[in-house]
Amino acid sequence: MCNALVGCLLMPHPAVGFVAFVWMAVLTTLWARIPTIVFMRVLFAEVTFLLVSVIGITMSIQLSPPSDALFAWSAVGMWVSVSAESFELALMTFARALGCATALNFLILTTPLVDIIELIRRIRIPDVLIEIMVLLYRSIFVLLDSLIRIATAQNARLGYHNMWSGFRSSAMLGSQLFLVAYRRSQRMRVALESRGLDGPICVVASRYTKDNRVWVLNIALTVSLCAAWFLL
């Protein structure tokens, strides 16, 4: 996955991005057996967003008629044009982002966060940060649970039936959530202190096994990306 990410970034050619996209799509759906619907749904949201952003890159607006453009429209005294150069740049960006995004999706859909945190620990990030990350990850779900329950209760009482009451309800929700977070942290402190905590929080890491197939796949991926870059 890292290969694809780095490969897409460093080799500026649309083909590299598309090759990486195909690789990652196949790996996610066939090898990791992520349901195709889940994969497509995540992808769809990203692609719409990407298309909108890329359109911004292709078009340029000016007051005089453009000299060398693929397309040009005029409206209310201004010219909107698409030049060959900017079109190429946009295609490039689209392919790169598509390749990178599917690579990231592969990581997201296959790897639990605990394993990612373990990986980060191995590259020697300060301990304080790791601890905060572990606590943060755990707390997200605790708070999310509170958030959903409060929001459901508010909804059941028509708390969001118009804009203004929506604002009021969101504000109540936000401030209550702050209190929940604060009190949780106090209780966790008490709980940990009463168990004698006075230093960093240590957690036993799970064991990992080596798998040679991963290396084979990695090499194949890198070679195909390089091939796409050299041949096209």
Binding site: I132, L135, S139, I140, V142, L147, L177, S185
Partner: peptide
């Protein structure tokens, strides 16, 4: 530590709030 962890989670959950 606990305070910062919860504060981060608060910011995360807040950004998920509609």
């Amino acid at each position: 530590r606990m305070m910062l962890g919860l504060a981060g989670a608060f910011a995360f959950v807040l950004s998920a709030l509609k």
